[in-house]
C-alpha cells in the first residue's frame, strides 16, 4: 500500500541558550490518499511543530517528509493550511483573502473564473452574505470559516489543520466541524489535523495518532476509528464503541503519554 504522505524518522531540534532542545524525535507516520488523520497530544508536545514541518514553514532537522512522491522542502500552496488563529489579513475582505491565494494558484484562469471559485467556496462555508466584510467585522467562527474556504479553494493535494477550532466556543466548534466534514467529503482531500480535543478527533478522523509528551515527542499509539461515513454526532453518541475509544484516548493522555513507547513495555500499536 503506497502512502500519499510518508513521514520517516522525523527530528526537530531547536537551539536554546541551554543547548539544542530536541522537540520531536523518530516520528514515523504514513497517510493514505483521502484519509483524515488527527494528531492528538498535550499542549506543547510538538504536534504543531510536526504540522508546520509538513507545511514547510519550519525546517526539518532530520528525517524525510514525502508528499505524493516528492520530498517536502519548503512551503507551497499544494498544502492548504488552516491556522489556529485564522490568520486572515485584516486589510482585505474575506473575499480578497481567498482571492489572494486563488490568484496565485489559478493564474491561468480568467478573472471571472477566479472570482467564481472564491465565491463558490465562500458560499460552501456559509459566508455568501458576508464575503465582502473585513475580518474585523466577522465573528471568530466566521473568520475560521473563511480560513477553511481559503485552504480548500486552492484545491491543495492535502490539508493541514493546526487546532483550527481551538479558539471557538463549543457550539460554533460543532458547526465548523460539520462544515469541514462536508467539504472534506466533497473533495476527498487527504487531511492531517492537530487537536487536543478527544471528541473532535473521534468525530472527524479515520485514525487518531497519539503523541507522547515532549521533549523528544513521538508517536505513542494509533487508534483506528471505524465509524461509517457520513457520520452524525448523534449516531456516534449512541454507539457504545464511541465511549470505549474515548476512554482509550483519555487514558492515553492521562497515563501513557508521559512515556516514550518501548521503554516501559507498552504496545506500539493498539487494535481498537
Amino acid at each position: 500500500m503506497s502512502k500519499f504522505l510518508e513521514i520517516t524518522q522525523l527530528v526537530k531540534t531547536f537551539p536554546t541558550p541551554k543547548g539544542p532542545l530536541t522537540v520531536v524525535r523518530d516520528f514515523d507516520l504514513g497517510l493514505k490518499k483521502g484519509e483524515f488523520i488527527t494528531v492528538i497530544g498535550h499542549s506543547g508536545c510538538g504536534k504543531s511543530t510536526v504540522l508546520s514541518m509538513i507545511a514547510g514553514l519550519s525546517d526539518v532537522t532530520g528525517g524525510v517528509i514525502v508528499l505524493a512522491g516528492k520530498e517536502v522542502t519548503n512551503a507551497g500552496p499544494d498544502r492548504g493550511v488552516v491556522f489556529q488563529a485564522p490568520c486572515l489579513l485584516p486589510w482585505f475582505t474575506a473575499f480578497e483573502n481567498v482571492m489572494l491565494g486563488i490568484d496565485q494558484v489559478y493564474y491561468t484562469a480568467s478573472k471571472l473564473e477566479r472570482t467564481q471559485i472564491a465565491e463558490y467556496y465562500l458560499s460552501l462555508v456559509g459566508l455568501a452574505d458576508s464575503m465582502h466584510k473585513r475580518p474585523g467585522e466577522l465573528s471568530q467562527g466566521m473568520r475560521q470559516r473563511c480560513g477553511i474556504a481559503r485552504a480548500f479553494a486552492l484545491s491543495p493535494k492535502m490539508l493541514l489543520l493546526d487546532e483550527p477550532f481551538g479558539m471557538l466556543d463549543s457550539l460554533t466548534k460543532f458547526e465548523l466541524q460539520d462544515v469541514l466534514l462536508n467539504l472534506w467529503q466533497r473533495d476527498q482531500k487527504t487531511a492531517l489535523m492537530v487537536t487536543h480535543d478527544v471528541d473532535e478527533a473521534l468525530y472527524l478522523s479515520d485514525r487518531v495518532v497519539m503523541m507522547t509528551d515532549g521533549p523528544e515527542a513521538t508517536v505513542g499509539d494509533i487508534l483506528e476509528v471505524k465509524f461509517p461515513r457520513p457520520r452524525t454526532r448523534r449516531q456516534l453518541l449512541e454507539d457504545p464503541e464511541y465511549y470505549r475509544l474515548r476512554e482509550y484516548l483519555i487514558h492515553f493522555l492521562n497515563e501513557r503519554s508521559h512515556h516514550r513507547p518501548g521503554k516501559n513495555g507498552q504496545p506500539a500499536l493498539a487494535h481498537a
Partner: peptide, 16 residues
C-alpha cells in the same frame, strides 16, 4: 509571523 506564513504558504512573489 502569521501573516508572513500566509504569504509563504501561498508562495507569493517578493513584490506581492
Amino acid at each position: 509571523q502569521d501573516y508572513l506564513n500566509v504569504g509563504r504558504v501561498l508562495k507569493l512573489s517578493r513584490w506581492k
